[in-house]
Every structure is written in C-alpha cells, then in structure tokens.
Amino acid sequence: MSSEARLEYLRSIATANVIDSPSPYKSQKHQIKKKVNRRNKAARQLISDEQKRINGLLEASVSEENTQETCKRLVPKVTYFNINAPPSMKPPKKYCDITGLNGPYTSPTNNIRYHNSEIYQLIVKPMAPGTDQEYLKLRGANFVLK
C-alpha cells in the first residue's frame, strides 16, 4: 500500500472513532462545566501523597485520642505500604553478574561478582568504565548520585 493510501486509511479509521462533541457518553452537565485541568502526577509523587494522607489521619486520630477517651485509635489495616512484601530472611545467594551462574568471587575494583577466572579475565578486568555500573544496576547495587 502506498504511503498516501496508508495515510488515507488511517484517517478513515480515526474518523470512525471520532465521537461527537459534546460526547453523548458523558454527562452534559459535566461537559458544560469548564474542563478540569488535571495535573498528571508521577507514580512516585502519588505514592508519597498517599503516605502523607495516611500519616495525617493517624496523627489526627492520636491527638483526638488524647482529648477524648472514648474515641478509638486508628490502626492501619490494608494500605499500599503495609502489604509490601518484607525483605527476605534467608541469606541472599550470590550470582555472577555477567552470566547468572554462581558467583563466589567479587572483583575488588568494581564489586562485580563473577563465576570464574575466565570471566574475570575476559569481561570483568577489561571492563570499560561505566559498564560495571550497568551490571550492578541489574541487582540494584549501582551507585546513585543524588
């Protein structure tokens, strides 16, 4: 299909999906209202907002408890944070950062774990600066400059 025909086809698809404005699927009242300007927050921001909200509620409940004897103190039950799986209790196994095999050795210069002397000679020793961080990043052991 020629590029022009392709474009024409795409336009026809898009046009078939165009919904009249104001959209019949949406509440008229809502559309008459000025369109809300939503701010798109990043996930990290949203999570920290939630943390703030929960902490705020807890603090409020504590201070309330001090003034009124009868009020029950809030206990977090199910929040985004307390269902997060805890760290493992088992000693972490060591794997070669290059191959994924067992990695009993650690390079003294850049903390890369490696499987045997061959991997060390071929990969770890001549490793270009920066590549070591890429490898360490895989298991979250890289340096993060803040």
């Binding site: 805890p86 493992s88 895989l138 298991r139 979250g140």
Partner: peptide
C-alpha cells in the same frame, strides 16, 4: 528471588 532483580523483598 527478587534480589536478583534488585528488589529487596522475599520471593
């Protein structure tokens, strides 16, 4: 073993 992928969590 989420530690392989840099997650400090139990599997």
């Amino acid at each position: 073993e989420p530690t392989i992928g840099g997650q400090d969590q139990a599997g």
